[in-house]
Design a protein around this nucleic acid. Structure first.
Lengths: 254, 254
DNA sequence: CCTGACAAGTGGTCTATGCCACTTTCTACT
DNA sequence: AGTAGAAAGTGGCATAGACCACTTGTCAGG
């Protein structure tokens, strides 16, 4: 069982055993060494290593070597009922603004936010880091009319929804989608992962108490170091329908 | 901007344009034709096609050709407040039991379900299909002591939690995790997707009203045709903490 | 007209080779 | 002892070729 037939599979199994028996950060033998040891060609070795890199088990560094990757960070998305204090994702989270501009919404973002394509929005690209390391890249779109005074500082400190409240915006509801994706070149570069590595794509549209769309966010979370946990409460047919969840995707902040 | 430098990137961009301008199911030029047309080697073409296959944009069939892939299915995980009727994922969902056995829990599943490793469980592997096509593969583990009379029929009909209720088990709460993953060979084969294609990994541990662990599920949902949508309600600090969500990951059923 | 075999076209796996670019180590010179 | 340059070791990109395996289409024979 699990017996590899193809040479690439043999190499992969050999490497999986190395990964299981070495700590994160440990180097694995160089490609050329593996060629000799396993009697396969270099493209075949590279193909097997490619697969393990894409699944987040190995990390490659040009000119340095290939190393066993670290474990994932878990995001708990359940809090005590009614509590303000949300369960943070493990690690110390920070934000770093990569771009901040007031631009026209355009057709696509305009549709999402129910705005004219010409309406102005705050466009913010920001990097989310955990313990100093990139975890996600987010693209926020906030109608300028709703929070005209929004600043870069607002984007980098504390809970973003707290910041919005300080601008008179009381968020009420959000619809969010999650799907698996793979990184493109830009995202890969920003996040320090390979291109086409597994990732989670989040899209969220937030409305305030007055029914206005106040935020549209598109985020990419690296899949090798991030996962979501949720707690669901399910009742009998008569009581079903109530789940006490305070969902916080994608780390901190809301 | 977006200008490919590498030959592999040039090929990929060429193919992306083809994909955008052709409907699902349309064939793309054969590998050898692309070699000639783009003046690149076959391994280079294959590498670019590999990437598009892994992201779910193309589908390869041995001996037949390469075709533009179809769009994703969206799972809405929000229902009307208090309603029994849950928003179904699009398409017609069915289950097909692949395996059903009573086996010892083992160390890992035993820990999850708070059982002795020797305790017996119902182990069920089942395929979830939408419109007749594989969408997910699920591995259910239910303590035999909790539902001694569970049958294959229970696994294939209607809402699984309704079936458990018929066995006197009233599910109350579940904790679930979601992370991006890639398919292994077995999953790829069952789901009809390539190995190492992006997918969503779900793990869920369900408890009943008496605090017993009644179910542990491990599921793989293909990423090329599936995504999750949720609606979150957020209030002011005083009111925050209540989200009216009825989460149903992974299609139908719970 | 039907069937079977063969050819052509498709993707799949692998080897061999060359060269580029980055990083680290070692050696020689100051 | 320190520094700079070269060498060695690492991953990255690409080509060329051979052969395997699957699918489809065509043609000849019955």
């Amino acid at each position: 069982m699990g017996e590899a037939i193809l040479k690439r599979e043999q190499v992969r199994d050999y490497l999986l055993e190395l990964i299981e028996t070495h700590p994160a950060g440990a180097p694995i033998p160089a490609e050329r060494v593996l060629c000799q040891r396993l009697s396969v060609s270099r493209p075949t070795v590279r193909s097997a290593v490619d697969e393990l890199v894409n699944t987040g088990l190995l990390v490659r560094q040009h000119g340095r070597g290939t190393f066993v990757a670290r474990a994932k960070i878990t995001q708990e998305m359940v809090a005590d009922t009614g509590a303000m204090a949300l369960p943070r994702a493990s690690g110390t989270w920070e934000s770093r603004v990569l771009e901040h501009a007031r631009i026209p919404a355009g057709a696509r973002v305009g549709r999402r936010l129910h705005l004219s394509p010409a309406a102005e929005i705050h466009y913010i690209a920001r990097l989310r880091l955990v313990d100093g390391e990139p975890m996600a890249v987010e693209y926020l779109h906030v109608p300028a009319s709703i929070a005209p005074g929004l600043t870069v500082h607002d984007m980098e400190s504390g809970d973003f929804y707290d910041r919005l409240r300080e601008h008179g915006v009381h968020v009420h509801e959000a619809v969010q989608s999650i799907e698996p994706t793979v990184t493109n070149e830009s995202e890969a570069s920003i996040l320090g992962v390979p291109v086409f590595a597994p990732a989670l794509l989040f899209e969220r549209l937030t409305t305030d108490a007055e029914g206005r769309q106040v935020e549209y966010v598109h985020s990419i979370y690296r899949g090798d170091r991030y996962r979501i946990v949720s707690r669901l409460t399910l009742g009998d047919a008569a009581a079903r329908g109530t789940v006490d969840v305070q969902a916080r995707f994608g780390g901190d902040p809301f």
